[in-house]
Amino acid sequence: MSLKTLKKQRRIQIVALTAFALLVSTAMIGYAMRDGINFFRSPSQLVAEPPSPSETFRIGGLVEEGSIERGNGHEIRFNVTDGGATVPVVFAGVLPDLFSENQGMVGTGRYVSGVFEASEILAKHDETYMPKEVIDALKEQGVYEAPES
Rank of each mutant, 00 (worst) to 15 (best):
M1H: 10
S2D: 14
L3M: 11
L3N: 11
K4Q: 15
T5C: 04
R11L: 11
R11C: 10
I12Q: 10
A16Q: 07
L17Q: 12
L17R: 15
L17A: 12
T18D: 06
T18N: 08
T18P: 07
A19L: 10
F20H: 12
L22G: 15
L22A: 15
V24E: 10
S25W: 00
M28N: 12
I29M: 11
G30D: 07
M33S: 15
D35E: 15
G36Y: 13
G36T: 13
G36E: 14
G36W: 10
F40Q: 03
Q45D: 10
Q45Y: 07
Q45K: 08
V47D: 11
V47P: 03
A48F: 03
A48L: 03
P50C: 01
P51H: 01
P51G: 09
S52H: 04
P53E: 11
S54T: 14
T56E: 13
I59W: 01
L62K: 02
E64F: 05
E65K: 05
E65L: 07
I68L: 00
I68K: 00
E69F: 08
R70K: 13
G71Q: 09
N72M: 11
N72S: 15
N72F: 12
H74P: 04
F78H: 00
T81Q: 01
D82T: 00
G83I: 01
G83P: 06
G84S: 10
G84C: 02
G84R: 01
A85N: 05
V87D: 00
P88N: 10
V89T: 06
V89I: 14
G93R: 03
V94S: 11
L95D: 08
P96E: 05
D97G: 14
D97S: 12
D97P: 04
D97I: 07
F99A: 02
F99Y: 01
F99H: 01
F99D: 02
S100W: 06
S100Q: 01
E101H: 02
E101F: 05
E101D: 09
N102E: 05
Q103I: 03
G104T: 04
G104S: 14
G104M: 04
M105T: 07
G107C: 01
G109K: 07
V112S: 06
S113G: 10
G114P: 05
G114W: 06
F116V: 02
E117T: 08
S119F: 05
S119H: 03
S119K: 02
E120N: 11
I121N: 01
I121G: 07
L122G: 13
L122S: 15
L122R: 07
A123D: 11
A123T: 09
K124P: 04
H125P: 04
D126E: 05
D126T: 01
E127H: 02
T128D: 14
T128G: 12
P131T: 06
P131S: 15
E133W: 04
V134S: 06
V134E: 08
I135W: 05
I135F: 07
I135N: 01
D136S: 05
A137N: 11
A137H: 05
L138V: 02
K139R: 15
E140D: 13
Q141E: 14
E145S: 12
